[in-house]
C-alpha cells in the first residue's frame, strides 16, 4: 500500500480534513492548534489529553469535532466517586428473565469526552486503559469491541491539585497527544465575546452539519497508513525519542510507543498537506504534543524551573534534521 499511494488519492482526504476544520471554525473561535491536534489524533486513531484551565473551550471543541465527524458522542464528568462500571457498563440482573443483561456504559461510543479525568481515582482511570489501547472492554470476562472510530478526549485542569489523582504514566502513555490550551490573545477573546453577543449558545451546536461519517473516517485512517515514511525520517524520530532517555534533566524518557505515535501523527500531517510521504516538517510540530506527557523531569530540573517543553525544545534543536544523501 505504501508504494501504491499516489498524491491524487489524497485529494478526498484533504477535502474532508479541510471541511471539518472549517466547520469547527464556525463555532470555535481561535484554538486552531487544538483543533488541528484533535483532527490529527482522530485520523491517526489516537487519543488526546487536553490540559488547560476552565473556560477555554475544550469541551466545545470536542463536541464540535464529534458533531462534524457525524460520530456518536458521549461525555463523562469524572468525579472522585466515579466507578469503573460507570464508564464501562455492567451486567444487571433482570428479574423477568432470571439472567444478567449487560448495560453498556458511555464508553460504547465513537467519541468519549472524559472531562476532568484526573478527578477520578486511579482505579476508575484504569477502566479506560483497555479501551484506549485495545479498543475493547472486558466486563465479567466478556470482551466487547468498541465502535470504530473510537477516540478519547480527556481534559484536565493543570492548576488544581486538591482532590485530584494524577494520571499514572501507563495511562498517560496511551494518549497520542497532549495538547495544552492557552488563554486566547486579546483579538480572539474579543471575537469570542462578540460571537456570544450575537446570541451564540455553546450548548446548542446541533445546527453544525456533519462533514463526514464514521465510516469515512475509518477509511481515511487506513489511507493515512499508506503515507510513505523514509528510513531517514524513522531514524530522526527514533533519535528524538531516544534523546529523552539520555537527557540529564529527564528522569524518565519516552517509550518506543512515542516513536510510533510520532510516525502516525506525522503521516496524518503529511496527508493533510497533500503529500504521500513524510518530511521532517511533518514531524517537528508533533514532537512536543507527543513527548510532553511521556517524559518525567528530574526533581532538580524542576527545582530550576525547567519544564518538559523546555527540554523537548532543546532536544529538537540538538538533533540534526535529515536531508537525504
Amino acid at each position: 500500500m505504501t508504494e501504491d499511494l499516489q498524491e491524487s488519492s489524497l485529494r478526498p482526504f484533504i477535502d474532508t480534513f479541510e471541511r471539518m476544520r472549517a466547520r469547527i471554525a464556525e463555532v470555535v473561535v481561535g484554538q486552531e492548534e487544538l483543533v488541528l491536534g484533535l483532527l490529527v489524533a482522530l485520523f491517526a486513531g489516537g487519543h488526546v489529553l487536553v490540559e488547560g484551565v476552565p473556560g477555554l473551550g475544550k469541551t466545545l471543541v470536542a463536541r464540535s469535532l464529534s458533531q462534524v465527524s457525524g460520530a456518536l458522542f458521549k461525555r463523562i464528568q469524572f468525579t472522585p466517586d466515579l466507578m469503573p462500571s460507570d464508564v464501562t457498563g455492567s451486567s444487571i440482573y433482570a428479574r423477568e428473565t432470571g439472567s444478567f443483561t449487560f448495560m453498556p456504559g458511555p464508553i460504547f461510543t465513537n467519541m468519549l469526552l472524559a472531562d476532568e479525568v484526573n478527578r477520578a481515582p486511579a482505579k476508575t482511570q484504569s477502566a479506560l486503559l483497555e479501551a484506549m489501547q485495545e479498543q475493547q472492554v472486558t466486563v465479567d470476562g466478556n470482551s466487547r469491541p468498541l465502535a470504530a472510530p473510537f477516540m478519547v478526549i480527556a481534559t484536565q485542569n493543570p492548576v488544581e491539585s486538591q482532590g485530584t489523582y494524577p494520571l499514572p504514566e501507563a495511562q498517560l502513555d496511551r494518549f497520542l497527544l497532549k495538547l495544552t490550551v492557552e488563554n486566547p490573545p486579546k483579538d480572539i477573546e474579543e471575537r469570542i465575546v462578540k460571537q456570544h453577543a450575537r446570541g451564540f449558545d455553546p450548548k446548542d451546536i446541533s445546527n453544525l452539519a456533519p462533514a463526514t461519517t464514521p465510516e469515512e473516517i475509518v477509511a481515511m485512517q487506513r489511507l493515512c497508513e499508506g503515507v510513505r515514511v523514509d528510513d531517514a525520517i524513522v531514524t530522526y524520530m527514533v533519535e528524538l525519542v531516544r534523546r529523552t532517555r539520555d537527557d540529564r534533566a529527564i528522569e524518565l524518557g519516552a517509550s518506543p510507543r512515542a516513536s510510533i505515535a510520532m510516525l502516525k501523527a506525522a503521516r496524518v500531517v503529511a496527508a493533510s498537506e497533500g503529500r504521500a510521504f513524510v518530511t521532517p516538517d511533518d514531524v517537528k510540530p508533533m514532537v512536543k504534543p507527543i513527548l510532553r506527557h511521556r517524559v518525567m523531569l528530574h526533581p532538580d530540573a524542576e527545582l530550576q524551573g525547567l519544564s518538559a517543553d523546555d527540554r523537548i525544545d532543546e532536544i529538537v534543536r540538538a538533533v540534526p534534521v535529515p536531508r537525504g544523501t
Binding site: V53, P158, P299, E302
Partner: peptide, 14 residues
C-alpha cells in the same frame, strides 16, 4: 508529589 511535579508546565490564567 506527582501532581506538583507537573505544575511548572501549567500556566495560571491571568
Amino acid at each position: 508529589d506527582t501532581g506538583e511535579r507537573r505544575l511548572p508546565e501549567a500556566k495560571r490564567p491571568p
